[in-house]
Amino acid sequence: METLSNIENQKLTLTQKSEELGSYIGQTPLFPIQHLYTSRQVKIFAKLEWQQFGDSVKARPAYRIMRKAIKQGTLHEEVQLLDASSGNTGIAYAHIGAALGIPVTLCLPENASDERKRILKALNVNIEFTDRGGGTDVAQHVAREMYERAPDRYYYADQYSNPGNWQAHYNTTGPEILKQTNGKVTHFICGLGTTGTFTGTGRLLKEYKSDIRLIGLQPDLAMHGLEGWKHLETAHSPSIYDASLADDIRAVSTERAHQLITLTARKEGVLISPSSAANLAGALELAGELEEGVIVTVFPDDLSKYGEILTQLF
């Protein structure tokens, strides 16, 4: 039994422990949307990404980044993992860090939700609060400064530039989608934030079958409420973004996402986060334009870390 073997192997090295943790990352269910959209010829599926260790889609890149650094010897119990995050990547680092005994320091915008702050506190994260009007760009600046001041103290994960981000999706999310759809996926659609999910999954799917369509989603406005998403007109693309991949880029409003949180709860029985609902909005719009196809998206998170939105909507 796996549990017994874990009990018997108390003296694993950090590298071994980090590799064992991999069994609990990814392998998320592919959930069919059956009530908000019904068609015999067009199907919509969503990966329920909060159903893994680390609680969100960000567990995949956080784990890969950390495992690689541990293997290379640049991250260990005596060095703190440092990064900027407004939420889920930070929480994923925190879960993995706690499990492996690696301290985590995060630069977090002051207006991150109370739940997130409490979760990070519970997982013993050192938090450096940054300007509430500056988003993660200011948080990233602060993280970089902290690293430059004390490079021996930190391993700077830098999720926006770290190739481990997209590689995690190339090696796990993409193959899972192919397996779970028996290779029948025709469209992959998801929001652009760090762009790791889109770039990694999209690249793998295109290599499998070049006519699989990849649709990127962005918020309709610069000032939006879709956590982690980027408004392309007013943002720099992260260095890991491959602009040549997308067959189409579309926009989703925060209001539409909020509307779909309610509808998805009542019709599909799942409480999803704003970014999940925005992905679904894009998938539903796309489905309405197709005569046949298998559309896959991701639900990066559920609504449990968004108490304010839960209160506002219900």
């Binding site: 915008p109 207006n111 988003g135 993660t136 760009d137 998403w229 408004h231 007109e233 943002a235 720099h236």
Partner: peptide, 19 residues
Amino acid sequence: PAIAGGYQSAEQPAEYSTG
């Protein structure tokens, strides 16, 4: 914005870029 993150100024130096 009620939720932090997800944006950055295009005019900022790339080395500060996040989202």
